[in-house]
Every structure is written in structure tokens, then in C-alpha cells.
Amino acid sequence: MKRIYLFFAVCLLPIFLIGCTQQKTTQAEDSISAGLLVTESGLGDDSFSDSAFRGLEQARDELGITFDYREPFDQNYEEQMKELIQQEHDVIIGLGYNALPTVESLASEFPEQAFVLIDAVSEKENVTSITFKEDEGSYLIGLIAGMKTKSGVVGFIGGEEIPVVQRFEEGFKQGVEKANPDAEVLVTYANTFDDDQKGADITKEMVDQGADYVFPAAGFTGVGALKEAEVQNIYAFGVDSDQFFVAEESVVSSMLKNVNVALYDVMEQLTGDQALSGEHITLGVEQNGVGLAPIRLINLTEEQQKTIDQAQNQ
């Protein structure tokens, strides 16, 4: 009798496994999916692309979504994004101002496809644009730099001179001026987000001019600036993500640009059966779109901390 039971159990096991496999496939097919085109710096930038990727990873782990991604190292945005569209994702996400022309073109070519554009604004009805109040977060960084500089000279390093980076610059300069009207702010644009050596070279030049704090908003170029700040024994601020671990003896804080939070919210909306509206969403301190990473390496006085807290609350 035991042999008969064993025979039936063995016979039924493949059927059970097939049933489980079919169920798993159906669940995967039913899940919301996203296609992500990161910046031309690719993953591993310790900044913008990595933040976006983390947001989708969190959505995968907590919401059950699936996603794929492409890295346009050769600036072949359209080719890479078309590959994602052909996979029939529920939403296609383009990162950065440089993705705007491709998103606009393909949004017209594929009017039924939903797109999300980060850091630029499209008027296309099937494109939801998400931008950030970089000036709010950079203002906080500027306050710290203005309050703590000993030389009275600080530096801002931009990637490409485009509106989003100019907002970083403006906020930083306003914060420095508020805290220390006599301080000088050096400004240099690298005209690239992908050259860490250029970031290092600009940092050296600023140190030669007396800068003791630098704030790069320049992608992978900025990573070079942070590492060189450590070599030059000055302080620096990270951007987009908490970049303390890029240069642990130099990075005081980072201006968090929570692309991860924005994309998690997008996927949460889609998994809740809420369609994207094609609107323009702007996220600041109040919406947890921007903020400060923990302040390390330096000590703020009680009055200086109060200044930072008041600025955040305003």
C-alpha cells in the first residue's frame, strides 16, 4: 500500500510543479513593469543613475514590480529606449535633460506608451515630467559652506550648463551669501558629466584660488572632484545621493535629490491601478524631493544648527 501511495505522489509531483510554474509565470506577466534608461554615465555613478535604480529595486522588493534598464554609454538614447519600448513595459523612464529629445520623439511615435521624464519637462500628453527644487537643497548646502569656511572662498562645480544645474548653482550661492555675505563663490562648469579627471583638475584650480569647500553637481565628473578634495585636504559636498563613502575624509554632507523616492511613488501609483496623468510634478523639501544627508566631519554650533533647521522648516 505504501508503494502505491508513493507511486501516486511521484506521479503527481510533476503536475504540481507545472501548476506552480504556470502560476508564477502568470503573476510575473500580471505585474507592473518599468523600463529605465539611465544617464550616459551609467550605473555606478554614486549619484543620479544609482538613485533611480535604487528606487526601482525598492519597488520590486516591496511592490512586486519588475524592471529592466539600459545604459546609453554611446549616447544612443533612441536605440536603447526603443529596445525597452519593444519589451512592452507599463512605463518607460528617461533620466536627465539629455533624454528629453528622445522621450519627446518616441512619445509621439508611441502615443499609447506611458513615459516618465526626470529633470526635464515635456508637453506631450503621455509624458509625466518630474523635476526637483534643487535650489532649496543647494541653499542648505550653501548655508553650511558659508558658515564654516575659514578661507572665505568656496567653489561650485557644474556638469553641463543647463537649467537644472544652474538651479543648483543659484541655490548654493544664495545660501553662502545668506550665511556669509563676504565669502567668494568660485563657479566653473566642466561641460561634461562623465569626466572624473576634469572634476579633479577643476578642484585643484579652486584650491589654488583658496577654496576650502567645494560643491560639485556634475555626475561622474563630480566624483572626481570629491576624491580630489580628499587629496587636497579640503571639505566637499556630495549631490543626488549620500556620497560620503566616495571620500570619507572630505564629504561633509550631500544634497539629496530623491529620484529613488520619486520613482518608487510612480510605481506605487501604477500598482494601485492609477494611471499616470502626463502632468508636471515638482518636488522640494516639503515633498521629500530634496534634503540633506547627515552632517559629518564638522561640528555645527547650536546657533548654526538652528539656522539650518529654520531654513528647512521654511
Rank of each mutant, 00 (worst) to 15 (best):
F16T: 13
I308P: 05
L143P: 02
V10S: 13
R70V: 07
A183C: 03
V261Y: 12
E161P: 10
F172H: 01
F16K: 12
G152A: 00
V246R: 09
Y189R: 11
N126G: 00
L6M: 03
G155C: 05
I162K: 14
K2F: 03
V223E: 14
Y139S: 05
G159C: 03
G55W: 04
Q23N: 12
Y213G: 00
Y5C: 08
E302I: 13
S47H: 13
A99V: 09
T25L: 14
P181N: 14
V261T: 14
A120V: 03
Q22C: 14
C11S: 13
N191C: 06
V91I: 01
I157V: 05
A183G: 00
T102F: 02
A190M: 02
K257H: 06
D182H: 04
A179N: 11
M1S: 13
L95V: 14
D74T: 04
T271H: 09
V231P: 03
I298K: 06
V116W: 03
T25P: 11
I18N: 08
A59Y: 02
Y97S: 06
E78T: 11
E78I: 08
D90S: 13
A311K: 01
Q304T: 04
I141G: 08
E205F: 05
P111E: 12
L12T: 15
K204Q: 01
G289N: 01
A229N: 04
D182F: 03
Y189H: 11
G137E: 08
V239S: 13
V261Q: 12
E123D: 09
E279I: 01
D196G: 15
V185I: 09
D74Y: 01
V164P: 10
F244V: 10
L226M: 06
S250T: 00
Q232R: 01
T39P: 02
L140N: 04
L300P: 04
D194A: 15
T188Y: 10
L226C: 07
A217R: 11
A99E: 10
G96C: 10
T131A: 07
I65H: 05
S47I: 11
A262L: 02
Q269Y: 03
E104K: 05
F168K: 10
D30W: 12
Q243N: 13
E286W: 11
Q27N: 14
